[in-house]
Amino acid sequence: MRAQTNLVALVLALVLVTGAAVVGVAVADGALAGADREPLDRHAATAVADRLVADGSPTTVRANALDAAAVAELNASRVEALAPPAEEAALRIALDGEPVVERGAASGGATVRRSVVVVNRTGNARRTIDIADGATGRVPRGVGRAVVDVDPGPNTTVHTVRADGRVVLHDGAGLDTNATVHLFRYEPTTVRIETDPNATGRVAVTYPRRVVETHTLTVTVDA
């Protein structure tokens, strides 16, 4: 009788210990799976991405807006100067999958993705307006300064050039000039020519072109 009581106790004890062991291994497995396996890679990739998109970084025009010219000149040593944690590690920086900087073969490692816009400020855009009384041309938003080149044809007098109703150039005797005018940059501007009827010639409005593209910046570091 006593031996059988011990048997029940033994079975109970075995079930308890086995159950505890299973739960313990499950918890340990979960902890191992959730653990950051590559803390150094992740730290380096985060640091590089943060400094590439930060406001005031040499590669940006404002926070999260990369300067296309600076991105084109980017190389591994410049990235290192910007973010020392990436030193001597395999490094790949890509915009929408297109590599910008590549050093070594970053096959594994840690990858950080950031949403950025790339602002391209190279080149000028030119709008030509054929002169007629009341002829208009449109300058897109974001342009603060434009060069207006008035080139009237024969027997034509251009009195006034207006930007959104505001007089920016005026000469009662006739304009024939190449002048920089200031525009309101937060709205599209309509440039309007005031001249005589039957006027000929051209007015060219030149302004810096800004093309903004949306990209996903991917930084992979494999130390």
């Binding site: 009581t5 106790a9 109970l12 004890a13 075995l14 308890l16 210990v17």
Partner: peptide, 11 residues
């Protein structure tokens, strides 16, 4: 039972 006490310690 001593076995159960041991098991509890193990758990």
């Amino acid at each position: 039972s001593l076995t159960v006490v041991e098991a509890a310690v193990g758990v």
